[in-house]
Nucleic acid binder design. Sequence first.
DNA 1: TTATAATATGCAATCGATTGCGCAAATATG
DNA 2: CATATTTGCGCAATCGATTGCATATTATAA
Lengths: 343, 343
Amino acid sequence: MNSKKTTIHDIAEKLNITASTVSRALNNNPRISEATKKAVLTMAKDLNYQPNNLAAALRKGKSQLIGIIVPRINRSFFSAVVRGVEEVANQLNYRVVVSQSLETVENEIAVVNTLLNARVDGIIVSLVGEKSTDYEHYENVTKKGVPLVLFDRTTTEIGTSQVIIDDYLGAYMATEHLIKQGCTKIAHFTHKKRFNIYNERYRGYVEALKNHNIPFNESLVCEGNMQLEDGRNCTKRLLDTDNDFDAIFSSSDYAIMGAMQVLKERNVKIPEEVALVGFSNEPFTSFTDPPLTSVNQFPIEMGQAAAELFFEMLNSTKKKLIPQKTVLQPELIVRASSLKLEH
Amino acid sequence: MNSKKTTIHDIAEKLNITASTVSRALNNNPRISEATKKAVLTMAKDLNYQPNNLAAALRKGKSQLIGIIVPRINRSFFSAVVRGVEEVANQLNYRVVVSQSLETVENEIAVVNTLLNARVDGIIVSLVGEKSTDYEHYENVTKKGVPLVLFDRTTTEIGTSQVIIDDYLGAYMATEHLIKQGCTKIAHFTHKKRFNIYNERYRGYVEALKNHNIPFNESLVCEGNMQLEDGRNCTKRLLDTDNDFDAIFSSSDYAIMGAMQVLKERNVKIPEEVALVGFSNEPFTSFTDPPLTSVNQFPIEMGQAAAELFFEMLNSTKKKLIPQKTVLQPELIVRASSLKLEH
DNA sequence: TTATAATATGCAATCGATTGCGCAAATATG
DNA sequence: CATATTTGCGCAATCGATTGCATATTATAA
């Protein structure tokens, strides 16, 4: 019953040809006659042949695997990106190996190493670190000639391709939207660790105010970890210090949810008294009451774009390729939480 | 600069020993002296040696990879399961390859095949199909001696281990909770495709009614695809046909969200007039207004349990192992949507 | 001191597929 | 008809690590 796995040699033997021919036949090599190809194919089926990619990978020096590293896979944004990558990769007969860095650089280093050991053909990653010393293991990757693509949480310190959305623009659109709804005292929630993405969003916020001649008020900016609780704290502080504000633009949907909770608890009307806009368009944003205006980051498309950049690098013949940067356009999804005017 | 990848042979040469010894030293084989081990280790570091798992995998016949197949990775339940699997797997130096079946059996078949080609050491899967003919490709897997573990959407038709939560119990708890809140006319939303899990939940609902002497009313059961829209339709139908009901227990959080929307639109008070309970404890359930009572399926724990079953199978010396079944206890998470009484 | 056991390492085959090179037969060209 | 070309396939090395068996050296026992 367990008649050993059948190999191309078994097929060759049965047909009185060599393994080379079988290999070429299976790979549809033009130098093999149609007749033998057909014979090989049917014999392969008869013997229930299952190709061993490991052997091919070893010989060819490529595993048809893409490693992808995300902080945590069970976060809707990241899992959606993975989905996008997977869909493009599968099309081209590549598989995706998923790893979590769990937000620590040590994990990240370990994970990069095991992926390299597994001889993945490339790595797609959303970074954990923020200091430039946190990137050495990635410089190692590029030095080895393994394609590396960054997404969302990126850096320019590693000279490699990346895909991001235009965070600046997203924030600008969000803020401008609030302004057009008549808001003039717009608070902003941002991350205390100033990743690129949060800095850009902050910039967008500030610029939108400036371009509409609204004075920037430092005390309306609140920093935190961008979690629900941080949003709650920021909102309480705003309310308690009696800072006058009529809108909040948060760089995170979770933080703005905290705001919504606190405002409701204190019977502040949304959006009449305070309008709310988040960032990321998390799946829950359409289920809140009122539904939350947010900025769509197109995570699936981001994954697809990352995969495409990866394959470009992979297929590039040049040794030194110029890092590409794909910038996706964000989309402001307007829902009731910010709609003070009828449209 | 690109001085070829260094192999154990390079290390061997430098030290005037053979590759065998290097291999054994790196694997900490007791038959190698401490001295040479140390020498090998430092030389490996000096030469920037990166082990090639492909070669080892080919030789040993195992890849240290676990394939996991989910309908879609960007669904919070599934991504959380993947996270659980990954965490256990990494501990044991295994990597996880993720694939999506995208809810079609054809995709599933293709994906199983490529995983087998990649020589994964086993497969963990939540099934797509519902007909027994949909399982042939999996019977193939077990026949080849490749460990297979099912989770959530399982079947007993494939003789293999599985991990599920006690869906019956979860539904029973949910229904009983509603009864204790004083509800007597409890509607139920279920899936029109009667996967095991939905059948079990249906059973739990019916049994809870029975045990509390509440008559079962067929017309309060509504079937659909368990999406938001289905929940909306079911709720409208219930309202429009003037079926009297004071609660809904839905086998899906999405469907119950549809219910919440429609009820709000029609100014039906939640939970006073209609109490709501969902299933799955999706992340958004705590963000709705009112927050949604739901049944926690412990997805991360489910992933961990699946991984543990996998490793049990892997390490079992017996050829024929008895399929194990891990049943997790669900937890009813009570939130405002069903709380008619103060606690 | 000799036989025996333990220790440390080498030899060579192996996992399964790929591929450059070579060669014979078939076909085309002049 | 002789030479050149194309077609179809085989030979054997190769990818890099593992491992059963053999061997040499040293330590121990009798």
